[in-house]
Protein backbone atom coordinates (compact mmCIF):
# COMPACT_ATOMS: atom_id res chain seq x y z
CA UNK A 1 0.00 0.00 0.00
CA UNK A 2 1.79 3.10 -1.22
CA UNK A 3 0.27 5.66 1.12
CA UNK A 4 1.07 3.76 4.32
CA UNK A 5 3.54 5.45 6.65
CA UNK A 6 4.96 2.12 7.80
CA UNK A 7 4.55 -0.99 5.74
CA UNK A 8 6.45 -4.18 6.47
CA UNK A 9 6.36 -7.33 4.40
CA UNK A 10 7.23 -10.56 6.15
CA UNK A 11 9.87 -8.66 8.05
CA UNK A 12 12.14 -11.20 9.72
CA UNK A 13 15.19 -10.90 11.89
CA UNK A 14 16.82 -13.94 13.40
CA UNK A 15 19.47 -13.96 16.06
CA UNK A 16 20.47 -17.46 17.06
CA UNK A 17 17.45 -19.22 18.50
CA UNK A 18 14.87 -17.55 20.61
CA UNK A 19 15.04 -13.84 19.85
CA UNK A 20 14.22 -11.84 16.75
CA UNK A 21 11.00 -11.44 14.81
CA UNK A 22 9.33 -13.61 12.19
CA UNK A 23 7.18 -12.59 9.24
CA UNK A 24 5.89 -9.36 10.70
CA UNK A 25 3.38 -7.62 8.40
CA UNK A 26 2.59 -4.20 9.75
CA UNK A 27 0.63 -1.38 8.25
CA UNK A 28 0.54 2.02 9.91
CA UNK A 29 -1.65 4.60 8.22
CA UNK A 30 -1.09 8.33 7.96
CA UNK A 31 -2.31 10.25 10.96
CA UNK A 32 -2.90 7.27 13.19
CA UNK A 33 -1.54 6.57 16.63
CA UNK A 34 -0.44 2.99 16.43
CA UNK A 35 0.32 0.99 19.53
CA UNK A 36 2.81 -1.84 19.49
CA UNK A 37 1.99 -4.01 22.46
CA UNK A 38 3.94 -6.94 23.77
CA UNK A 39 5.89 -8.18 26.76
CA UNK A 40 9.57 -7.36 27.13
CA UNK A 41 11.63 -9.39 24.70
CA UNK A 42 8.73 -9.92 22.29
CA UNK A 43 10.51 -8.16 19.44
CA UNK A 44 9.19 -4.60 19.71
CA UNK A 45 12.58 -2.95 19.86
CA UNK A 46 13.97 -5.29 17.20
CA UNK A 47 11.18 -4.21 14.85
CA UNK A 48 11.81 -0.54 15.55
CA UNK A 49 15.56 -0.89 15.06
CA UNK A 50 14.90 -2.57 11.71
CA UNK A 51 12.74 0.37 10.65
CA UNK A 52 15.56 2.77 11.52
CA UNK A 53 18.19 0.62 9.76
CA UNK A 54 20.26 0.03 12.89
CA UNK A 55 19.98 -3.67 12.12
CA UNK A 56 19.22 -5.38 8.83
CA UNK A 57 16.43 -7.85 8.12
CA UNK A 58 17.22 -11.52 7.61
CA UNK A 59 14.39 -11.50 5.08
CA UNK A 60 11.41 -9.38 4.18
CA UNK A 61 11.49 -5.62 3.97
CA UNK A 62 10.12 -2.46 5.44
CA UNK A 63 8.87 0.61 3.64
CA UNK A 64 8.44 3.94 5.37
CA UNK A 65 6.71 6.73 3.49
CA UNK A 66 6.98 4.32 0.56
CA UNK A 67 10.80 4.36 0.84
CA UNK A 68 12.94 1.33 1.51
CA UNK A 69 14.21 1.28 5.09
CA UNK A 70 17.66 0.15 3.97
CA UNK A 71 18.31 1.78 0.62
CA UNK A 72 16.69 5.09 1.48
CA UNK A 73 17.50 5.05 5.16
CA UNK A 74 18.74 8.62 5.27
CA UNK A 75 15.64 10.04 3.61
CA UNK A 76 13.52 7.93 5.93
CA UNK A 77 15.31 9.04 9.09
CA UNK A 78 15.04 12.67 8.01
CA UNK A 79 11.27 12.36 8.51
CA UNK A 80 11.27 10.42 11.78
CA UNK A 81 11.56 11.39 15.41
CA UNK A 82 12.77 8.63 17.71
CA UNK A 83 12.80 7.98 21.42
CA UNK A 84 14.90 4.88 22.16
CA UNK A 85 13.75 2.38 24.74
CA UNK A 86 16.89 2.35 26.84
CA UNK A 87 17.68 5.99 26.50
CA UNK A 88 21.31 7.05 26.83
CA UNK A 89 22.16 10.67 26.15
CA UNK A 90 25.51 12.45 25.86
CA UNK A 91 26.34 13.06 29.51
CA UNK A 92 28.82 15.83 28.83
CA UNK A 93 26.31 18.04 27.03
CA UNK A 94 23.52 20.20 28.37
CA UNK A 95 20.00 19.90 27.01
CA UNK A 96 20.49 22.97 24.83
CA UNK A 97 23.76 21.58 23.48
CA UNK A 98 22.19 18.22 22.70
CA UNK A 99 19.31 19.86 20.85
CA UNK A 100 21.73 22.17 19.00
CA UNK A 101 23.82 19.21 17.91
CA UNK A 102 20.82 17.23 16.67
CA UNK A 103 19.22 20.27 15.02
CA UNK A 104 22.38 20.67 12.93
CA UNK A 105 22.45 16.98 12.03
CA UNK A 106 18.82 17.18 10.97
CA UNK A 107 19.17 20.44 9.10
CA UNK A 108 16.74 22.28 11.36
CA UNK A 109 17.11 26.06 11.40
CA UNK A 110 16.80 26.33 15.19
CA UNK A 111 15.97 24.45 18.36
CA UNK A 112 12.80 26.48 18.96
CA UNK A 113 10.59 23.43 18.39
CA UNK A 114 12.54 21.63 21.08
CA UNK A 115 12.28 24.56 23.47
CA UNK A 116 8.50 24.56 23.05
CA UNK A 117 8.18 20.88 23.91
CA UNK A 118 10.63 21.30 26.78
CA UNK A 119 8.50 24.06 28.23
CA UNK A 120 5.42 21.85 28.00
CA UNK A 121 7.16 19.04 29.83
CA UNK A 122 8.92 21.37 32.27
CA UNK A 123 12.28 20.10 31.11
CA UNK A 124 15.33 22.08 32.19
CA UNK A 125 17.57 22.44 29.13
CA UNK A 126 20.35 24.38 30.83
CA UNK A 127 21.68 21.67 33.09
CA UNK A 128 24.27 19.13 32.13
CA UNK A 129 22.66 15.83 31.25
CA UNK A 130 24.77 13.90 33.75
CA UNK A 131 23.13 15.94 36.52
CA UNK A 132 19.60 15.03 35.42
CA UNK A 133 17.36 12.47 37.07
CA UNK A 134 16.08 9.51 35.09
CA UNK A 135 12.71 11.18 34.61
CA UNK A 136 14.29 14.40 33.35
CA UNK A 137 16.46 12.50 30.91
CA UNK A 138 13.35 10.77 29.63
CA UNK A 139 11.74 14.17 29.15
CA UNK A 140 14.75 15.36 27.20
CA UNK A 141 14.48 12.20 25.11
CA UNK A 142 10.90 13.15 24.24
CA UNK A 143 11.95 16.73 23.52
CA UNK A 144 14.64 15.73 21.03
CA UNK A 145 12.31 13.24 19.35
CA UNK A 146 9.62 15.85 18.79
CA UNK A 147 11.89 18.83 18.11
CA UNK A 148 11.61 18.79 14.32
CA UNK A 149 7.84 18.19 14.30
CA UNK A 150 8.42 14.93 12.40
CA UNK A 151 5.81 13.26 10.22
CA UNK A 152 6.33 10.03 12.11
CA UNK A 153 7.53 9.70 15.68
CA UNK A 154 8.55 6.33 17.08
CA UNK A 155 8.42 6.02 20.85
CA UNK A 156 9.91 2.92 22.41
CA UNK A 157 8.42 2.64 25.91
CA UNK A 158 7.91 6.42 26.21
CA UNK A 159 6.52 6.62 29.74
CA UNK A 160 9.12 4.45 31.43
CA UNK A 161 10.36 6.46 34.39
CA UNK A 162 8.05 9.42 33.89
CA UNK A 163 6.24 10.61 36.97
CA UNK A 164 2.42 10.68 36.70
CA UNK A 165 2.20 14.44 36.10
CA UNK A 166 4.65 14.37 33.22
CA UNK A 167 2.98 11.24 31.94
CA UNK A 168 -0.33 13.11 31.83
CA UNK A 169 1.36 15.94 29.96
CA UNK A 170 2.81 13.44 27.52
CA UNK A 171 -0.66 11.97 26.95
CA UNK A 172 -1.96 15.45 26.17
CA UNK A 173 0.93 15.98 23.81
CA UNK A 174 0.08 12.76 21.98
CA UNK A 175 -3.54 13.88 21.64
CA UNK A 176 -2.39 17.18 20.15
CA UNK A 177 -0.06 15.46 17.72
CA UNK A 178 -2.91 13.19 16.71
CA UNK A 179 -5.12 16.22 16.15
CA UNK A 180 -2.36 17.79 14.07
CA UNK A 181 -2.33 14.73 11.84
CA UNK A 182 1.06 13.38 12.89
CA UNK A 183 1.63 9.65 12.82
CA UNK A 184 2.84 8.06 16.02
CA UNK A 185 4.16 4.58 16.66
CA UNK A 186 4.24 3.76 20.35
CA UNK A 187 5.65 0.56 21.73
CA UNK A 188 4.68 -0.46 25.23
CA UNK A 189 4.15 -3.44 27.47
CA UNK A 190 1.43 -1.53 29.26
CA UNK A 191 -2.09 -2.21 28.00
CA UNK A 192 -3.89 0.68 29.74
CA UNK A 193 -1.36 3.11 28.30
CA UNK A 194 -1.90 1.77 24.79
CA UNK A 195 -5.66 1.86 25.27
CA UNK A 196 -5.47 5.44 26.42
CA UNK A 197 -3.23 6.66 23.59
CA UNK A 198 -3.76 4.62 20.49
CA UNK A 199 -6.26 4.13 17.70
CA UNK A 200 -5.06 0.71 16.69
CA UNK A 201 -2.76 -1.76 18.30
CA UNK A 202 -0.52 -4.48 16.96
CA UNK A 203 0.06 -7.25 19.44
CA UNK A 204 3.41 -8.99 19.27
CA UNK A 205 4.58 -11.99 21.17
CA UNK A 206 7.67 -14.11 20.75
CA UNK A 207 8.56 -12.30 17.58
CA UNK A 208 5.25 -12.84 15.84
CA UNK A 209 2.52 -10.31 15.24
CA UNK A 210 -0.54 -12.00 16.72
CA UNK A 211 -3.17 -9.51 15.68
CA UNK A 212 -3.89 -5.94 14.84
CA UNK A 213 -7.00 -4.64 16.56
CA UNK A 214 -8.72 -1.35 16.95
CA UNK A 215 -8.48 -0.19 20.51
CA UNK A 216 -12.29 -0.08 20.75
CA UNK A 217 -12.44 -3.78 19.83
CA UNK A 218 -9.77 -4.46 22.35
CA UNK A 219 -11.74 -2.71 25.06
CA UNK A 220 -14.91 -4.54 24.11
CA UNK A 221 -13.14 -7.83 24.50
CA UNK A 222 -11.03 -6.84 27.44
CA UNK A 223 -10.95 -9.25 30.33
CA UNK A 224 -10.32 -8.39 33.91
CA UNK A 225 -10.52 -10.16 37.19
CA UNK A 226 -12.91 -8.51 39.59
CA UNK A 227 -13.16 -8.99 43.31
CA UNK A 228 -16.04 -7.68 45.41
CA UNK A 229 -16.52 -7.74 49.15
CA UNK A 230 -19.98 -7.38 50.55
CA UNK A 231 -21.33 -6.40 53.94
CA UNK A 232 -23.52 -9.46 54.00
CA UNK A 233 -23.18 -13.01 52.59
CA UNK A 234 -24.17 -13.35 48.94
CA UNK A 235 -25.41 -16.25 46.89
CA UNK A 236 -24.16 -17.60 43.59
CA UNK A 237 -27.60 -17.40 41.98
CA UNK A 238 -27.70 -13.63 42.08
CA UNK A 239 -24.62 -13.34 39.83
CA UNK A 240 -24.66 -16.55 37.82
CA UNK A 241 -26.64 -15.09 34.93
CA UNK A 242 -24.93 -11.70 34.70
CA UNK A 243 -23.63 -11.27 31.12
CA UNK A 244 -19.88 -11.43 30.56
CA UNK A 245 -19.11 -13.11 33.88
CA UNK A 246 -17.00 -16.26 34.07
CA UNK A 247 -15.17 -18.21 36.73
CA UNK A 248 -17.57 -17.00 39.36
CA UNK A 249 -16.50 -17.96 42.86
CA UNK A 250 -18.32 -16.89 45.99
CA UNK A 251 -17.04 -17.48 49.47
CA UNK A 252 -19.28 -15.92 52.06
CA UNK A 253 -18.76 -12.15 51.78
CA UNK A 254 -16.28 -12.43 48.99
CA UNK A 255 -16.95 -12.68 45.25
CA UNK A 256 -14.39 -13.12 42.53
CA UNK A 257 -14.91 -13.54 38.80
CA UNK A 258 -13.54 -12.78 35.35
CA UNK A 259 -15.43 -10.17 33.35
CA UNK A 260 -15.23 -9.83 29.59
CA UNK A 261 -16.09 -6.44 28.13
CA UNK A 262 -17.99 -3.93 30.22
CA UNK A 263 -18.12 -4.26 33.99
CA UNK A 264 -21.40 -2.37 34.04
CA UNK A 265 -23.77 -5.40 34.34
CA UNK A 266 -22.00 -6.96 37.28
CA UNK A 267 -21.57 -3.67 39.11
CA UNK A 268 -25.27 -2.96 38.72
CA UNK A 269 -26.09 -6.38 40.09
CA UNK A 270 -23.66 -5.86 42.96
CA UNK A 271 -25.02 -2.46 43.93
CA UNK A 272 -28.34 -4.00 44.86
CA UNK A 273 -26.39 -5.10 47.94
CA UNK A 274 -24.02 -3.22 50.22
CA UNK A 275 -20.56 -3.33 48.62
CA UNK A 276 -17.60 -2.78 50.94
CA UNK A 277 -14.73 -3.04 48.52
CA UNK A 278 -14.02 -3.40 44.80
CA UNK A 279 -10.73 -4.62 43.44
CA UNK A 280 -10.16 -4.69 39.72
CA UNK A 281 -7.08 -6.43 38.35
CA UNK A 282 -5.83 -5.20 35.01
CA UNK A 283 -5.03 -8.34 33.13
CA UNK A 284 -1.40 -9.14 32.47
CA UNK A 285 -0.41 -9.40 28.83
CA UNK A 286 -0.21 -13.17 29.14
CA UNK A 287 -3.81 -13.27 30.35
CA UNK A 288 -4.87 -11.15 27.40
CA UNK A 289 -3.06 -13.39 24.98
CA UNK A 290 -4.72 -16.41 26.54
CA UNK A 291 -8.15 -14.85 26.49
CA UNK A 292 -7.82 -13.59 22.93
CA UNK A 293 -5.82 -16.19 21.19
CA UNK A 294 -5.84 -19.26 23.40
CA UNK A 295 -2.77 -21.39 22.96
CA UNK A 296 -2.99 -21.12 19.23
CA UNK A 297 -0.04 -18.84 18.83
CA UNK A 298 1.14 -20.10 15.50
CA UNK A 299 3.85 -22.57 16.31
CA UNK A 300 4.88 -20.98 19.59
CA UNK A 301 5.29 -23.00 22.76
CA UNK A 302 2.29 -23.27 25.08
CA UNK A 303 1.96 -20.21 27.28
CA UNK A 304 2.65 -22.04 30.52
CA UNK A 305 6.12 -22.80 29.18
CA UNK A 306 6.73 -19.09 28.80
CA UNK A 307 7.89 -17.07 31.75
CA UNK A 308 5.25 -14.51 32.48
CA UNK A 309 6.67 -11.27 31.24
CA UNK A 310 5.17 -7.88 30.68
CA UNK A 311 3.06 -5.74 32.88
CA UNK A 312 2.37 -6.99 36.34
CA UNK A 313 -1.30 -7.11 37.16
CA UNK A 314 -2.28 -3.67 38.29
CA UNK A 315 -4.68 -3.34 41.12
CA UNK A 316 -7.08 -0.55 41.71
CA UNK A 317 -8.84 -0.57 44.99
CA UNK A 318 -11.83 1.50 45.93
CA UNK A 319 -13.05 1.43 49.47
CA UNK A 320 -16.82 1.72 49.60
Amino acid sequence: MPDAIIHTERLTKRYGHARGITDVDLEVRPGEVFGFLGPNGAGKTTTIRLLLDFIRPTSGRALLFGLDSRRDSRAVRRRIGYLPGELTLYDSLSGVELLTFFAHLRGLPSIDGGRRVAKRLDCDLTREIKALSHGNRQKLGLVQALMGDPELTIFDEPTLGLDPLVQAEFFKLVDELRAAGRTLFISSHNLPEIQRLCDRVGIIREGRLLAVESVSDLKRRAVRRLELRFAEPVTTERFASVPGVRELAIDGLHLSCVVTGSVDPILRAALELRVEDVISHEPSLEEIFLAFYGNGVSGGPPPDAVPTAGAPAEEVSHAA
Binding site: R74, R77, P84, E86, L89, F102, L105, R106
Partner: peptide, 14 residues
Amino acid sequence: ERGTLDLLLANPIP
Protein backbone atom coordinates in the same frame (compact mmCIF):
# COMPACT_ATOMS: atom_id res chain seq x y z
CA GLU B 1 28.72 0.29 24.23
CA ARG B 2 27.38 3.34 26.04
CA GLY B 3 24.18 3.20 24.02
CA THR B 4 24.27 6.67 22.46
CA LEU B 5 24.76 5.38 18.94
CA ASP B 6 21.06 4.66 18.29
CA LEU B 7 20.19 8.21 19.15
CA LEU B 8 22.99 9.61 16.99
CA LEU B 9 22.10 7.48 13.98
CA ALA B 10 18.40 8.23 14.26
CA ASN B 11 19.50 11.52 12.74
CA PRO B 12 19.71 11.55 8.96
CA ILE B 13 23.47 11.05 8.71
CA PRO B 14 25.07 8.11 6.94
